[in-house]
Design a binder for these strands. Sequence first.
DNA 1: ACTTTCTGAAAACGCTTGTTATCAGATCAG
DNA 2: CTGATCTGATAACAAGCGTTTTCAGAAAGT
Lengths: 206, 206
Amino acid sequence: MRVYGGVTGADRKAERRAQLVEAGLDLLGGAEGDQLTVRRVCGRAGLTPRYFYESFADRDELVAAVHEHVVQTIATRALAAVEAAGPDAEAKIRAGLAELVRAVAEDRRHGRVLFSVTLTDPLLARRRVESSRFFARLLSGQARQSYGVPDTPELELVAQFMVGGLAQTLSAWLSGALRLSEAELVAACVEIFTAIADRKAPPPQG
Amino acid sequence: MRVYGGVTGADRKAERRAQLVEAGLDLLGGAEGDQLTVRRVCGRAGLTPRYFYESFADRDELVAAVHEHVVQTIATRALAAVEAAGPDAEAKIRAGLAELVRAVAEDRRHGRVLFSVTLTDPLLARRRVESSRFFARLLSGQARQSYGVPDTPELELVAQFMVGGLAQTLSAWLSGALRLSEAELVAACVEIFTAIADRKAPPPQG
DNA sequence: ACTTTCTGAAAACGCTTGTTATCAGATCAG
DNA sequence: CTGATCTGATAACAAGCGTTTTCAGAAAGT
């Protein structure tokens, strides 16, 4: 690993790895989700299979890296938005959802990796189950904190329902099946979330 | 196509086709959704590839047949339950959801083919998008009829949200991640559905 | 200079897939 | 019995996959 082209060995390797992750994001988040093959991702990254296995033990490791990258990016942004919002529960919901939607609209590949129903990679599907659970736990934790509800299986169900509904909604929106602006989308989702959260004690509102 | 073993040719062919669909349902609705290969489905059906192509032009045709069969079965049962219920909107929702849950609990393969998130067949994924839209249209039609709401993009969004949330919930329940009885599951879903439906005019209830 | 190492392209290996063809033997029709 | 046809098992084919290896040449170290 000596210096090459004025670049250190570790830097070159990191650069190649980043190119592979970026190409993987292109393919995983593209229209056809099952197109992430080693040959294809290398072609798109302008590299050869030899360099693929320099950074990843196998194909699944790249898929995991791409998904991890996306989850980290999105979760960080959404959580920051929630914490920056006031103490009001609905304000938190609105801030988190707005930031989430903004993020997936800015880079639709991220949204598709997280939510698109037409992605058919087996490992990605399994990881999505876990990240859905993760997001659901975040939600239910927020609910216990803001609404003071106990941690029951029914709360878990509600959180799963919200995550699944949001995923389907964003997937449809990203695919162009829902003719709504970003603001309308956020408003509708906030409405639904608060309706579910308040379902047993609806506020006196018309 | 002469008589063989006392069975007419058409009957034998139909029998073999039914065995293939049943085996396909086993595999598509099994734990690993990507195990439906021609060789495997034939092995499980006790037939050989030659008979596969006697009834299906290619692998995708079998996947489509299995999915179609499941959708028809479930939709028929759920619609019948809705129509048998009284004119009250919540009663209809409860009847439809209860029958849907009963159906997928009776034969979990059906539930998984329709809802499981870990099924990664590309054609099945595409068909699910369409059937989700179909179910969403059924729902929004019901809403327009029962609640008199106009057919806006926001109604479409709400329907998609409900379908997606229900799919995630049933998928989690079938996988054993939600420790709830069938009755509790139905009750919780009804609660969520009515909360969303009534979100702008909540009934005066504690 | 010469040797080591990194690069990029390509070929190779072993496997699974969908799909089609082969073939010996069982079962029917006449 | 004779010959046509259905059966079931198996092999064949071409393609794509993940993964490993080979190899000629460019760049660096000494």
